[in-house]
Simulated scan of single mutants.
Amino acid sequence: MTDRIPSTRSGRDGPLVRTVVHPEVPRPRSSEDNLLEVRRIRWSEDLLVVSATGEIDLATAGRLERALWGDLPAATVLDLTEVTFLGVAGLRVIESAATRAHAERRATGVVASTRPVLRLLHLFGVDAHVSVYQYLATAIREVSMAVPAPKP
């Protein structure tokens, strides 16, 4: 939006006019519904793929947490290839889900290919105790084979 404001100074052709540019008014942030989409795909009887698209931050991490909670099969793959932002709140959800899977003797893996997500997983050491894969097909194959045997 621009306004033309007459100046109090005058030139030989009349009053000088200057243009003032007003910055746009910031729009409110979209609701969490538009920031993150989470899908649960039952790949097989023993494998669940949870796919996230969008931003995982404090406002949206609960949606991911709900998808990774409840009665889960022997193996879970979390696909983050379409995640554009991963905040610490999302990282905590991933770590919590991985810790729970380990305690319940279930296999888990994460698929990530974008630099911001991979960097955060590495900086916080998540990749040291959760298998991280570049491709979904590889993760499905490897995690399915890594399902621990039931306790006697």
Score class of each variant (00 low, 15 high):
residue 114 T to Q: 14
residue 88 V to Q: 12
residue 89 A to W: 12
residue 118 L to H: 01
residue 97 A to I: 03
residue 87 G to C: 13
residue 99 T to W: 03
residue 89 A to Y: 10
residue 95 E to Y: 01
residue 94 I to G: 08
residue 118 L to A: 05
residue 110 V to S: 09
residue 94 I to W: 03
residue 116 P to R: 05
residue 89 A to F: 05
residue 113 S to N: 15
residue 88 V to C: 14
residue 92 R to Q: 15
residue 92 R to Y: 13
residue 93 V to I: 11
residue 97 A to K: 03
residue 111 V to A: 02
residue 96 S to V: 05
residue 86 L to E: 15
residue 119 R to S: 10
residue 114 T to S: 11
residue 120 L to N: 05
residue 93 V to R: 13
residue 101 A to M: 06
residue 92 R to E: 15
residue 89 A to M: 09
residue 119 R to I: 00
residue 94 I to C: 07
residue 102 H to F: 02
residue 101 A to R: 09
residue 109 G to I: 02
residue 118 L to F: 04
residue 113 S to P: 00
residue 96 S to R: 14
residue 114 T to R: 14
residue 92 R to N: 14
residue 97 A to P: 08
residue 93 V to N: 13
residue 91 L to Y: 02
residue 87 G to V: 05
residue 89 A to K: 04
residue 117 V to I: 03
residue 110 V to F: 04
residue 109 G to C: 09
residue 107 A to W: 01
residue 103 A to H: 02
residue 98 A to R: 08
residue 119 R to A: 05
residue 109 G to D: 05
residue 107 A to P: 01
residue 113 S to D: 07
residue 111 V to G: 03
residue 101 A to G: 05
residue 111 V to L: 04
residue 115 R to S: 08
residue 108 T to L: 13
residue 109 G to H: 07
residue 119 R to W: 06
residue 100 R to C: 04
residue 94 I to T: 15
residue 112 A to N: 07
residue 109 G to W: 03
residue 114 T to I: 02
residue 87 G to D: 15
residue 107 A to R: 00
residue 100 R to E: 09
residue 112 A to P: 08
residue 111 V to W: 01
residue 89 A to V: 06
residue 109 G to V: 03
residue 96 S to F: 06
residue 118 L to M: 10
